[in-house]
Amino acid sequence: MCSLEKRGNVWILTLAGDDAQNRLNPTLIDYLASALSRLASNATPGSVLLTTAHGKFFSNGFDLAWARSASSPAAAYDRLQSLVASLRPIIAALLSLPMPTIAAVNGHASAAGFMLAISHDYVLMRGDRGVLYMPEVDIGLPLPDYFVAVMRSKIRSPAVLRDLGLGGAKMTAAEAVKVGIVESAHDSEESTVEAAMRLGEQLARKKWVGVVYAEIRKSLYPIACDALGLTQKAIVSKI
């Protein structure tokens, strides 16, 4: 199962789904919702979130097998829509979390799993295996509005957006570093998590004020925040 543990100031959220691909189904999404809400209420200056998983997959996206196991195609479509709807507040919670966030991408991150990863402030990725991939064009599915909004907010190159969204490109860590989606590539799962941990400790030492940090983050990604229904809060600052 998933876990949320605290090491120093760094909260480590480990994804573990019902299968090795960490597919996002209602159980995993509910866990994420409660973990993020627990984090939001326990944040103190210096808190950092580090999200990772074990094995070949960070997350392979929505649990389409669960959706398809519904009684009819219409019911399957409803299940998919409910997954799309239930991940929305998770992405919104990440973008408004009052602390720096790091994804240590230990393996494949595709579709909704990719969105989950790039909704963190920093993405570190293992370089020896695993790709970032939007399979929607290959399987004939349109992109949910907030997927597009997060991609447009986080991926500034039109050519990269085109290759991922309209080309079904599978991007390795090295390529993702080159185009600015990933901070750094590492040669194993362990070294990715270690590097993420070091970055987390470094960010923790800044002891940033969480509410201000969250407002600054939101102001940098207005397209994503708009699609996610996040509004900017007015903060009376110290100056």
Partner: peptide, 29 residues
């Protein structure tokens, strides 16, 4: 159908000024 919708969703400002309204296709999963 999905290809067009993804393309239009990736370039919303262009589609907006060209008067292309976003449409939602019901896709098979």
């Amino acid at each position: 159908e999905a290809y067009v919708e993804i393309r239009q969703s990736l370039f919303p400002e262009v589609c907006d000024v060209l008067g292309l309204a976003p449409k939602s296709i019901v896709s098979k999963i």
